[in-house]
Design a protein around this nucleic acid. Structure first.
Lengths: 205, 205
DNA sequence: TGCGTTATAGAACACGGTGTTGACAAATTC
DNA sequence: GAATTTGTCAACACCGTGTTCTATAACGCA
C-alpha cells in the first residue's frame, strides 16, 4: 500500500535539496549507470552500488527502497520532462505535423543518451519501454480522435501500435548507435514513417 | 565461461528425458508461468517456486541455476521453433510476400500466448524482446541485400528498425488483447504495414 | 562567525533466501 | 528383477538485506 511514496518527485522544488543529498544521489546515479552497462539490474546489489559510489550502505536506504526503486525514480524524472515535451506540442497533430515534436523528443533523448541506451537495451526495463509507448500512444489517440468520428477504434489500435513501436525501434536503433545521426534527420524519418503507417489503405478506402 | 551449458537445448532428443524429469520441469514451468502473471521475475524466489510446485527446493538446482536461468531456457525453446519458422520461409522475400511467414509466426505466438504475453509485457524481458527483434531483422536484411546493391546500408537500418519494431508492437498489442483477432488478419495487417514502411520515398526517389 | 539542524559514517543485529552436500527412499529403465 | 537415476529431506555456511543506534561531519541560515 505504501509503495509510491518514496519520493515526492519534484512537486516542490521550494527548497533546493541539501548539497550533501544532491551529491549522494548523483554519486549513486553515476554508479548505477556504470553498473548497468555491465550487467542487468537484477544482478546489481545495494552493496556493490554503495561500494562503487564509496559510501555507507545504510545511506542508500535513506532515499531508495532497493535498486529497482532507484531505477524507477530515475525513470520518473525522465518522464516528467518527456511528458512536458509532448504536452507542449498540444496544438500540433501528430499526423499533420509531427516533426517539431519529434525533434524535441529526439533531442531530449540525445541529452540522456546513456540512461536511455541502457534502459532500452537488452539489459533494459520493459516498464520503461512500456511507459514511453504509452506517452506517445496517448498523444496519438488524442490527435486521431479529434480528426475522425469514433468509428473503427480497433483498427486504430493496431495501426498505431505498429507506428508507435516503430518509433521506439527508431529510437532504440539510434541510441544504440550512439546518436550518430543528427536529431533532425531522425525526426524527419520518424515523420515520414508515421505518415505512411497511419495512411488509410487505398485498397480498402 | 561455463554459462550456457546448463541445457543442451534439445539438440539431441536421442533419448527422451526420464518421465520424472519431464514431470519436474513441467511442474516448475507451470508454477513459473503462474507466478509471472502475478509478479516480476525479480520478485520470484526459488523457494516460492518450488513451494508452489510442491517439490523440494534442491530439485530445482538439478536443472536450473536460478529463476532467470530457467526463464532463459524457456526462451531458448521458444526461439528454436521461432527460428525454424523463419528458416522455412527461406524462399519468400519479406518485401514481396510476407503474409505466409507472418501467419506462421502469429499462429505460433498464439499457441504460446501466456508466455509471450508475460515476456513482452511490462514485467517482461528486454532480452527476449531483443532476440525476437534480431531474428526478424536478420531475415529482413537477407531479403533486402538480395534485392539491392549494398548501397545506403545506413538507410536500411533505420527504416527496417522501424518496421521490425512495428511488427513487434503489433504482436505486443495482439497478445495483450488475448489474441482476440484471428491470426490471419494480423498477418495481413503486418504485411500491409511492412510494405508501406520499406517503401522508397517517392519524394526522394 | 557561530548557531541549531540535518545528513552520513560506522558498526551491529536478526532475518531469510541461496546454493551445496550428505544419505536415504522412490521411481524408472532395460 | 537388478542397476541406475531421480527426488526427498535435513543440515550447513554464506551473503545480502533492511533496520537501528550513536558519533561525527557538513550544511543552511542569521
Amino acid at each position: 500500500m505504501i509503495s509510491s511514496d518514496s519520493t515526492h518527485a519534484s512537486l516542490q522544488p521550494a527548497k533546493r535539496e541539501d548539497r550533501r543529498v544532491r551529491r549522494t544521489k548523483k554519486l549513486l546515479t553515476q554508479a548505477l549507470t556504470q553498473l548497468l552497462q555491465q550487467k542487468a539490474v537484477k544482478d546489481i546489489t545495494v552493496k556493490e552500488l554503495t561500494d562503487l559510489a564509496d559510501m555507507n550502505r545504510g545511506t542508500f536506504y535513506l532515499y531508495y527502497r532497493d535498486v529497482f526503486d532507484m531505477l524507477e525514480q530515475i525513470e520518473n524524472e525522465l518522464f516528467e520532462t518527456f511528458d512536458n515535451i509532448v504536452l507542449s506540442h498540444d496544438k500540433e497533430s501528430v499526423i499533420g505535423q509531427s516533426k517539431p515534436m519529434m525533434l524535441d523528443l529526439f533531442s531530449f533523448i540525445e541529452d540522456n543518451q546513456e540512461m536511455c541506451r541502457v534502459l532500452l537495451g537488452p539489459n533494459g526495463d520493459m516498464m520503461f519501454f512500456q511507459r514511453m509507448n504509452e506517452v506517445i500512444r496517448d498523444k496519438c489517440r488524442k490527435d486521431w480522435l479529434s480528426l475522425r468520428e469514433p468509428q473503427q477504434e480497433g483498427e486504430f489500435d493496431y495501426h498505431y501500435s505498429f507506428v508507435i513501436s516503430g518509433c521506439l525501434g527508431l529510437i532504440r536503433a539510434w541510441v544504440s548507435r550512439f546518436c550518430s545521426e543528427p536529431a533532425i534527420r531522425m525526426a524527419e524519418m520518424a515523420d515520414t514513417l508515421i505518415r505512411r503507417g497511419v495512411l488509410v489503405d487505398p485498397a480498402q478506402a
